[in-house]
C-alpha cells in the first residue's frame, strides 16, 4: 500500500557513476537531456540511445530496475504514440478508414517520440539511482552557491530540501499509524462517494498536520541545540573534488553531443 511508494530510489553501488562528483553528474545529466532534444533524426537518436545504454552498463544498476522506472511513464508513452500516429500526416499512407489515416510520417514521429522519452527517463533515473538524495541536494547547493551574491539563501534552500526528503518515509509511516488507529475506531475509508471519502480523510490529515508541526518544532529545537546557525562558516565532512573520471566522462559526453550535431547535419530531419 502506502509503503510501496519508493522514493529517492538509490541503488547502492561502487560503479564509475556512483563515484563521480555529484555536481558533474548533475550538470551532465542536464546537458544530455538537452542533447536528447537536439537530435532530429534516427541516427543521432540512436547515438544518444547507445550512450544511455552504455551509461546503464557503467552504472551497474540492473536492467530490471531501469525497466521499473520506465513503467510509470507507460501511459504517457502510449498516449503520445497514439496521438502522433493519427495526427501527424505526410509521406506514404499505410492505412486509411473514414477520417482516420496512418502515414509514414506519423509512424516515424510516434516511434521517434517514444524512443526519445524512454532515453530521457533512463538518463534521469540513472542520476537518482546512483546518487543519494543527500548528495544531490549537496551538489545543488554547491552549484547554486554563486547566487549568494544576490542574497539567495542557497544553504537554507538545500537544507530544506534535504529535510523534506528525509521526512517522507517518516510521514508515510505516520499516515499508516493514524489510518490504523482511525480504522480501529470504525472509520470507513474505502467506500462511499467522493464527498464521503474526502470527509473520511479529515480524521487522518488533522492528526498528521498536528504531528508534522510538532516534529518540525522538535527538529528545529534539536538543530539549535547542536548550534546550527545556517550555512555561514559551516565546513563539510565530505569535500567534493573533481577527479580524472569526471573529466573523462565530461569528454565522452561532449563527444556524443558533437556526434549528434554531425549526424543531424548529414541526415534528413524527422521531427
Amino acid at each position: 500500500m502506502v509503503r510501496d511508494i519508493t522514493f529517492g530510489q538509490y541503488y547502492a553501488g561502487k560503479s564509475l557513476l556512483h563515484r563521480m562528483d555529484p555536481r558533474m553528474k548533475l550538470i551532465l545529466t542536464f546537458g544530455m537531456i538537452v542533447a536528447i532534444f537536439i537530435c532530429h533524426n534516427f541516427y543521432s537518436l540512436a547515438l544518444m540511445a547507445l550512450f544511455a545504454a552504455a551509461a546503464v552498463v557503467f552504472s551497474g544498476v540492473p536492467a530490471k530496475m531501469i525497466l521499473k522506472s520506465i513503467k510509470p511513464v507507460m501511459v504517457i508513452l502510449a498516449f503520445t504514440a497514439i496521438l502522433n500516429i493519427f495526427y501527424t500526416k505526410g509521406g506514404e499512407t499505410y492505412f486509411e478508414w473514414w477520417k482516420i489515416s496512418v502515414t509514414e510520417k506519423g509512424v516515424n514521429t510516434a516511434l521517434f517520440t517514444v524512443i526519445r522519452i524512454i532515453v530521457l527517463v533512463v538518463i534521469s533515473s540513472l542520476l537518482t539511482y546512483t546518487t543519494t538524495p543527500t548528495m544531490l541536494t549537496d551538489a545543488i547547493e554547491r552549484l547554486l552557491s554563486p547566487l549568494k551574491i544576490f542574497h539567495v539563501k542557497v544553504h537554507t534552500l538545500a537544507m530544506m530540501m534535504t529535510l523534506a526528503l528525509r521526512f517522507i518515509p517518516t510521514l508515510i509511516e505516520e499516515i499508516e499509524r493514524i489510518m490504523n488507529a482511525q480504522k480501529a475506531r470504525g472509520a470507513d475509508l474505502e467506500s462511499g462517494g467522493l464527498i464521503h471519502r474526502a470527509k473520511a480523510l479529515v480524521p487522518i490529515f488533522i492528526p498528521l498536520m498536528v504531528s508534522s508541526f510538532r516534529r518540525a518544532y522538535e527538529l528545529a529545537f534539536a538543530m539549535t541545540c547542536r548550534c546550527y546557525t545556517g550555512g555561514n562558516g559551516r565546513t563539510r565532512m565530505k569535500q567534493m573534488k573533481l577527479h580524472a573520471r569526471d573529466f573523462i566522462t565530461l569528454f565522452v559526453c561532449l563527444a556524443v553531443v558533437a556526434g549528434i550535431i554531425v549526424l543531424n547535419h548529414f541526415f534528413t530531419r524527422i521531427i
Binding site: R177, I178, A184, R185, V202, P207
Partner: peptide, 15 residues
C-alpha cells in the same frame, strides 16, 4: 466494534 483496539501513543489519533 467488537474488538476495540487502542494503539501505542493513542493521542496521535485525536482530531
Amino acid at each position: 466494534f467488537k474488538v476495540g483496539l487502542c494503539f501505542q501513543y493513542p493521542e496521535a489519533q485525536l482530531f
